[in-house]
Amino acid sequence: MKGKKPYLACLPAVAAAVLLLVLAAPSRAAHGNGTKESPKEESSTLQFPVPPPPFSEGIFPCSECHAEMTPNPKRRKLEEEHTNIVLNHGQGRWCLDCHDLKNRDKLHLISGEKVGFDESYRLCGQCHGDKYRDWKVGVHGKRTGYWNGKKEYLLCPNCHNPHNPRFKPLAPKPPPVRPEDIR
């Protein structure tokens, strides 16, 4: 009996330790998930609820085609693919200024940081800082939703084609009836 006593005394301590581990497991897992996303990404997603990027049909993910291709960083005119894209955005630009060479499903900032297509406003904001500042507070661009509640933003490419960003003219709706034509 005397020999068993220390063993028995250990039991509650072991049980407590096991219990603690079990309790701690979910919180550790949650913490682990949280660290996967950078805090910057998390805050921007929370702050600007944007719709999915307006991709042309079947174009995304880009890696579907590009994964098997050897990346060619040489500045050139594309003659086989993407020939429909006319780049009319500033001067002297080309694809890899914004698109990432290694990960085709991402864009990259000047700093080298990779951003998703759903965060393209950070990329555009590098040059168009004044527009980005206005967009963040809801002054540039269209915002829908609720004036005193949840607001919905649009991404820059929802209105501006990133390769040719000038806003396209629209056909106006019919003019009002002239008073002399009212019967």
Partner: peptide, 18 residues
């Protein structure tokens, strides 16, 4: 509550209306 934006704000394609 919550209040929607006026229809003209919602329909404007250029985000002119605030």
């Amino acid at each position: 509550q919550p209040g929607k934006y006026p229809a003209c704000v919602e329909v404007c394609p250029t985000g002119t209306r605030k």
